[in-house]
Design a protein around this nucleic acid. Sequence first.
RNA 1: GGUCCCUUCGUCUAAUGGUUAGGACACCGCCCUUUCACGGCGGCAAUACGAGUUCGAAUCUCGUAGGGAUCACCA
Length: 457
Amino acid sequence: MKFVTRFAPSPTGYLHIGGARTAIFNYLFAKRHNGKYLVRIEDTDTKRSTNEAVKAIYDGLNWLGINSSEKVIYQSKNLESHVKVAHELLDKGFAYKCFLTSEELNDLRIKSRANGKPIKSPWRDNKCNSEKEEYVIRLKMPINGTTTIKDYVQGEVSVKNEILDDMIILRSDKTPTYMLSSVVDDYEMGITHIIRGDDHFNNAFRQIQIINFLNWKKPSYAHIPLIHGTDGSKLSKRHGATNLIDYRSMGYTSEAMLSYLTQLGWTSPEDNEDDYEFKKAVDLFSLEKINKSPAKFDIKKLDNINSKCLNKIDVEVVYKLLTERFGLVLNINQERRLKALIPELLKRVNVYIDLKDDFEWIIDDNFLCKETNNVKILQENNVIINNIGGLLKKCEWTKESINHCLKKFVQDKSLKFKDVGPIVRIALTGKTNAPDLVSIIYELGCTISLNRLNYKY
RNA sequence: GGUCCCUUCGUCUAAUGGUUAGGACACCGCCCUUUCACGGCGGCAAUACGAGUUCGAAUCUCGUAGGGAUCACCA
């Protein structure tokens, strides 16, 4: 059997975290079964769809590296086909023209809310059509029996057909609605597995009626639970960024995002490592292991995974991320210093943009400590750093010798390393938290280290 | 309100009727150590509640409470 999945976002805003995860699950499932993963832009609502949103979706998917296996499909390009199906449904008696005005509809809605029954248009059983040109086409939902869906995530769920409303499939302006277009496109694209957000679950019972009327093959369904914020409510701006791409600018890697989102709601059946790589999930993914309950978005966990990813990826990659992000133009020495210290610095941050706090002392050849409290400490201990500067001048430039030099100084002066270390660190970096001294001195090089240590504060 | 879904440490989750209810993140402590980290070791911490079925329930059934989805000429 061939597997075809699709991610079908509507271009009305940026790519949401939840949408991204839906895309990932679709991608994973298709790859796992050597199938196709397609992207379809659901832009039948011309009033709300924008080109910017389409671009935002592409940017997000590109960042994660989960692009469509084939050319992206725009729903709006297939409108004719949707309209044709609407009329087919009408001709076969599975749909009807409804001439209700919006006022009449409002009245019906109020009544339906009161008695708990769906809206039934009086035009449903009217044999004679009105002469008016203003009408919508509604689907004639079955009123008896039940509809059952065997969902990969939700299990077997049944609803009574009487609760199904006669949904509109063609608007009065003759354009098809999502409820119709989506079904037709899924059919024409040969989608075998519909993996989408839980918010579409109720739609499935209604959309499946179209499939039944037309005798089309039913796709399999997997309605995945939504992602919630820390307080358990639907993820929103209150909980921080919900725009996927914002996490790129915050310094997260796409690898981390991919891994985090993959494990949010899905557990690997074999590998219990929480920080498994996304690549492994391609071989292990299964819809059955998706949890039914919504998961909360936890940025601390993302931080942890991101930190692990950063420490695993190549220094060259991090260097590239940094120079692009901050527009750094470095000479060969500056580049060498930064690259040499990146591995040490990465142990101390969760997101790579936090490395910017260390740029100055690493890159700037003429850097000197400026922070007033720290300058004061240097003034009080100027002799010590100058002494060390003097000793290092005669030192062979290897880590062993530098280490030996520092240790000997401490010993000769009958001091503790902790009396000297922090001062030297401030002189070299202007900070109290930094990688180990020997590495700093060695990588900064003789000239720069001596300049900073011999300075008269 | 109707319909549907959900509920295990703070968080992500494991445990397909029998486990001292396991792991990871976070948090706390100890060790390592020239600071901060990394790393290592350890600790805190959960089956929403109430009945029932059973020798035995996190697991099956029912009820209660809480949460979520949906009820558009949006998708």
